[in-house]
Design a protein around this nucleic acid. Structure first.
Lengths: 361, 361
DNA sequence: GTGAAAGCGCTAACAA
DNA sequence: TTGTTAGCGCTTTCAC
C-alpha cells in the first residue's frame, strides 16, 4: 500500500488517505493523464507497450476510476436501471415475480457485462417524486419490473429524457408474458393424462397475470370441449386487504369444499405456489394422495415449486428470455438505434414434476 | 415543457432535449447559480423570498440536480450501499434471508430518508474484482448483507478507504443475530406446553445461522435436562452441491424414519421453512395431525411461514432491529463519529402460530 | 502516437 | 444577502 506515499498533495486525513486518480498513475509512468485514460479504457491512441505499463501502474496503485467523474464528463452513465415495487411498508418480502425479475436481470447484466442499479419505487406520501435513478441521471435507461405505480407510469410517458422498457405490463416498449397460453397448454397436458375434471384457483384478478391466467383456463377447457363449473374456479383475496394468514385459510376452506364433492376434480391448477401448497396440504389432510388421487399444477417459479416434496409441476414465466429481451431492447433504445418490435410476447414454459400423474383407472 | 426554449445553447438533439441545469434556473430567476444551489438544498444564505422563487422556477423547469456532479464536487455521494450475495448463476431466487435483509434495508432507508444503492456481488471468474459501488465510489459506506465471499471480506479488511458494517456475519463492525438463543427459547416454550421429545433439523452447517441454531437446540435441551438423541438431529445437505429437489426428498425420508419410531417426537424444530414444510407434508401423509400429533416450529421469515395453512410458529431474526442498528452504525462511521459498540447482538423473536399446540393427554 | 486545454454540473470558499 | 471564482476527476477535442 504505497498510495499514501505517492499522494503527497491534498488534505488527506491520516485514517482515510485519498484514493489515487488518473494523475497519480500518469505521474508514476511519466505520461499524460490523457494517455492513462485512453489506455485503461482500451481506446486506440496509446502504444501497446505503454498500455501495458499503464495497466500495471494502475493495478499497483489500486487505481479505480471515479464513476461520478466519468458520468459527468462523458454524458453517459454506463448503468442500466431496474425499478421494482417493494412489498410495501408492512409486507416485507416482495413478491416472487419481483424476485425472479431481479434474479434474471442480474443474470442478464452479468452476461452482457453491463452495470446496473436497482431501485425500489416508493410512493412519496407528500406529492409525487420520480425515482432517484432518473432524477439524478444515474442510469442511461430503465427497466420497469412488473406492476408499477400508475402515477409513475403516467409521468414517465410525458418525459422526453428517459428511455425505458416495461416488463410484463403494457407500455410504449414492453415485453409481455402470455401466461394464459401456458395455462391453456397445462389443461391440455392434464387432458392427455386422462384428466377431465380440472379445477382452477387464483387471484387477485386485478393483476394481469391472474386475470389472463383465468382466461387461459377457460380457453383451455373450452378448446377441449370440457364443461366449466363456476364453483370450480377459486377467487382468492387481494393481498393488501386480506391478511395473508386469513387468505391462506380461505384457500384451504375452498379446497375442502371442492374436494368434498362426490365427483371432485382429479386435477387442480393454482395460480401461485401458495395456492397449490394449500391444496396439497388440504388434500393430504382429507386422506387423498398426490398425485394418485389428485394432480396439482401451479403457476409459479421453480425454486418455490421444488421447495416442498412432492415438487410441483409448474407453468412458469420464462423470465430468462423476458429479461434478456427487455435488456436488449433497452440497450437498443439507449444506443439510439431503432427498435424492431416495440412489444414482444414471450411464451411461458411448462415443467412437469412429481405433483402430476396420469389418472388412475 | 418550456425547457428546450430556455436552453438555446448546447447541441441538444431534437428527440432528447438537454435536461435543465442550475444555470437555467438561475437565469430564469435572475440570480446566480450559487444562490440556486444553496436554496434548493435548504442551506442558509438565501432570503426566504428568493428561495421561494427559486423553488418554483426549478419545479416549473423540471430541474433535477445531477447526482454525478454533486458527488464529484462535494466528495460525498449521499448514498448508502447494500451488498448482497445473489443466489448464484443457476440458483435463481436469492435466499429468504437476503430477501428479508433487503426489505428491511429499504424500510430503514426510507424511514431515515437515505438514498441507497443495492448491488449483488458476483465473483469474477478471472481474478478478483471489487464491487462497482466501491470501485466507482458511488456510496459513502456499505452494509454487507449476510454471507459474502471470503475473498471480498479479506480485501475489504485491508482497504483503508471504505466504511462498512457486516450483517449477521462477523466483521470489524457487525450486527449479529443470536438465533441460538431463539432456538433454546423455543425448546423451552415447547417444554412448557408439555413436550419432552423434541427433534431438530437444519443445515448446511457452514452457515453461521445453521451452526448456532443447532447449538441453541443442544443448549435448550440440556438446560431442561432433556436427553438428546443424535439421530433426532437432521443434517441437510449444502445447497450448491445437492440439487434442491433431492435435498427436499432427503428431508422427507429422514422425517419419515423419525416418525416411524414407536416413541416418535411430539415436536420438531426445523431450521428453514422448507424443512418445516416437508415435515408437515410427511406427517400428514403418514396420517398424523398437526399440531395435535406433532407440533412444528421453524426458523424463518413470517411471510413464508404464513404462506401455508396451518401457519408455522417461527423463530425469526429481528431483521427490522438488525437493519436499523446496522444502518445507524454505518451512518456514524460515515459521519466520522466514534461508534459506541462495534459488535451488536440482536435477539431473535418467537411468533406462535397454528402449527404448535399443547401435548395431548 | 501523444500532450495540452477545455469543460461536464455542481458545491465550497471567498469577496463584495 | 449575494455574486465570483476555483476546481472535484475524468473524457473529449484538437494541436503537435
Amino acid at each position: 500500500m504505497t498510495q499514501s506515499a505517492s499522494n503527497p498533495a491534498s488534505p488527506a486525513t491520516l485514517d482515510t488517505p485519498r484514493k489515487p486518480t488518473v494523475m497519480d498513475v500518469a505521474k508514476k509512468v511519466g505520461l499524460s493523464h490523457t494517455a492513462v485514460s485512453l489506455a485503461l479504457r482500451g481506446r486506440p491512441g496509446v502504444s501497446p507497450k505503454q498500455q501495458q505499463r499503464i495497466r500495471q501502474a494502475a493495478a499497483e496503485l489500486g487505481y479505480q476510476p471515479k464513476a461520478a467523474a466519468q458520468m459527468l464528463r462523458s454524458g453517459r452513465t454506463g448503468y442500466i436501471g431496474l425499478l421494482l415495487e417493494p412489498g410495501g411498508p408492512e409486507m416485507l418480502t416482495h413478491s416472487s415475480s419481483s424476485n425472479a425479475i431481479l434474479s434474471y436481470f442480474l443474470h442478464a447484466c452479468q452476461h452482457s457485462q453491463r452495470r446496473y442499479n436497482v431501485e425500489f419505487y416508493h410512493q412519496n406520501p407528500d406529492g409525487f417524486e420520480p425515482p432517484h435513478q432518473l432524477a439524478g441521471s444515474l442510469v442511461d435507461g430503465l427497466l420497469l419490473g412488473g406492476f408499477i405505480d400508475a402515477q409513475l407510469r403516467k409521468w414517465l410517458l410525458q418525459q422526453p429524457h428517459y428511455k425505458w422498457v416495461s416488463v410484463d405490463e403494457p407500455g410504449p416498449y414492453a415485453v409481455l408474458s402470455d401466461i394464459n397460453i401456458g395455462v391453456a397448454q397445462a389443461v391440455k397436458e392434464l387432458y392427455d393424462l386422462g384428466h377431465r375434471r380440472i379445477a382452477y384457483g387464483g387471484g387477485p384478478y386485478h393483476y394481469r397475470q391472474h386475470e389472463i391466467g383465468r382466461m387461459g383456463y377457460l380457453t383451455g377447457m373450452s378448446n377441449l370441449g370440457l364443461p366449466v363449473d363456476e364453483s370450480w374456479i377459486g377467487r382468492f383475496g387481494s393481498m393488501p386487504q386480506v391478511p395473508q394468514m386469513q387468505n391462506s385459510r380461505n384457500q384451504r376452506q375452498w379446497v375442502k369444499n371442492l374436494l368434498k364433492q362426490p365427483n371432485y376434480p382429479t386435477a387442480f391448477i393454482g395460480n401461485g405456489i401458495g395456492v397449490a401448497r394449500n391444496t396439497l396440504v388440504e388434500a393430504l389432510t382429507m386422506g387423498l394422495r398426490v398425485p394418485e388421487d389428485i394432480s396439482i399444477m401451479a403457476v409459479g417459479v421453480s425454486t418455490s415449486a421444488m421447495d416442498t416434496c412432492p415438487a410441483f409441476s409448474t407453468i412458469e414465466n420464462d423470465y430468462r428470455t423476458i429479461m434478456n429481451t427487455a435488456l436488449d431492447m433497452l440497450v437498443q433504445l439507449v444506443d439510439g438505434n431503432t427498435v424492431k418490435q416495440n412489444e414482444v410476447h414471450v411464451n411461458p414454459v411448462i415443467v412437469m414434476r412429481e405433483s402430476v400423474g396420469p389418472i388412475q383407472a
